Simulated scan of single mutants.
Amino acid sequence: MAELLSHVLVAYALATVASWRLEWLTTRWVAIAMIGALLPDLNRIGLFVADATLESVFGVPFSVDAIHTLGGVVLLSGVGAMVVVDQHRRAFGVLLAGALSHLLVDALKAYADGAAGAWLYPVTWARHPTPNLYVSSDPAVLAVVGTGTLLVWWRDRTRNE
């Protein structure tokens, strides 16, 4: 849960800082970016539903692992953009930006074999070497991200006064 919260807080901080320059990036769009940061972790549905069950429902071969990739988040951002009543293109871009922040942060974490996941699929199956900056289960990660987000939140509140 700490990792999921960290991704949402990173998206909030990045979108809030971007909103200082972009007038159209209101709190509504910041919230949508935060939702976008959740999209790659929808692959966790595989903990509850087997791929074979999803294959029988959709009628095509299906793997939830592809959700945590570039292709997966582009597809989910497109689906999510259709839910928004207006400004579908902007919603797509903001959802995708939140999801990309998630994928980029995950590209820096430590993996046992020293290579990140194939998150660039369908562009390439290559697994780049990761700098092993952090372990996702380390509570210090949430503390650092939380502190940074708190500073951004405080600056955002005081800059309008």
Score class of each variant (00 low, 15 high):
His128Ser: 05
Pro40Thr: 03
Asp41Ala: 10
Asp51Val: 02
Val64Arg: 09
Val105Arg: 07
Ala116Arg: 03
Val105Trp: 06
Glu55Val: 11
Leu70Asn: 02
Ala110Thr: 04
Leu22Trp: 14
Val57Gly: 03
Met82Leu: 15
Ala126Gly: 06
Leu151Tyr: 10
Leu25Cys: 09
Pro61His: 14
Asn132Gln: 15
Thr26Pro: 04
Leu14Tyr: 13
Val10Phe: 11
Thr158Tyr: 01
His102Thr: 11
Val145Thr: 03
Pro139Asp: 11
Asp41Asn: 13
Leu38Asn: 10
Leu9Arg: 07
Val141His: 10
Val123Gln: 01
Ala50Glu: 15
Val30His: 08
Ala11Ile: 13
Ala50Cys: 10
Val17Gln: 13
Ala13His: 07
Asn132Cys: 04
Arg89Gly: 01
Leu47Gly: 08
Tyr121Leu: 08
Asp138Val: 04
Val123Thr: 02
Ser137Met: 04
Ser63Tyr: 01
Gly93Cys: 12
Thr27Pro: 12
Val60Gln: 14
Leu54Val: 11
Gly59Ala: 12
Pro131Cys: 03
Lys109Leu: 04
Met1Thr: 12
His88Trp: 13
Glu55Leu: 05
Ala107Cys: 04
Arg90Val: 14
Gly117Pro: 03
Val135Asn: 10
Leu75Tyr: 07
Gly117Cys: 05
Leu4Asp: 01
Leu104Tyr: 05
Ala97Gly: 09
Ala52Gly: 04
Ala31Phe: 04
Leu70Asp: 02
Ser136Met: 05
Ala99His: 10
Val8Ile: 13
Trp119Asn: 00
Val84Pro: 04
Tyr111Glu: 01
Gly98Leu: 15
Ser63Gly: 06
Leu4Ser: 11
Ala50Trp: 13
Ile45Tyr: 06
Gly46Arg: 06
Gly80Leu: 09
Pro129Ser: 01
Leu120Glu: 00
Met34Ile: 02
Met34Ser: 10
Tyr134Lys: 14
Val8Gln: 06
Val57Met: 11
Met1Gly: 15
Leu103Ala: 08
Met82Ser: 10
Trp24Pro: 04
Arg159His: 15
Leu47Lys: 12
Ala140Asn: 11
Val30Lys: 08
Asp113Gln: 03
Gln87Tyr: 03
Val141Asn: 12
Gly148Pro: 07
Val135Ile: 11
Leu70Val: 02
Arg21Leu: 13
Val49Tyr: 09
Asp106Met: 00
Gly80Trp: 07
Val17Met: 15
Phe48Cys: 06
Glu3Pro: 08
Pro122Glu: 04
Ala140Glu: 07
Ala118Met: 09
Ala52Thr: 14
Leu42Tyr: 09
Trp153Asn: 09
Ala2Lys: 06
Thr16Met: 15
Ala107Gln: 06
Val8His: 03
Arg90Met: 15
Pro129Met: 05
Leu108Thr: 12
Pro129Leu: 01
Tyr134His: 14
Val152Ala: 13
Gly46Met: 05
Ala143Thr: 04
Thr124His: 02
Leu22Pro: 00
Pro122Asp: 01
Gly80Pro: 12
Ala2Arg: 05
Val144Asn: 12
Ser6Ile: 05
Phe58Leu: 15
Leu14Arg: 08
Ala37Ile: 07
Leu151Ala: 15
Ala15Pro: 14
Leu9Thr: 08
Asp41Val: 03
Glu3Phe: 01
Ala143Arg: 14
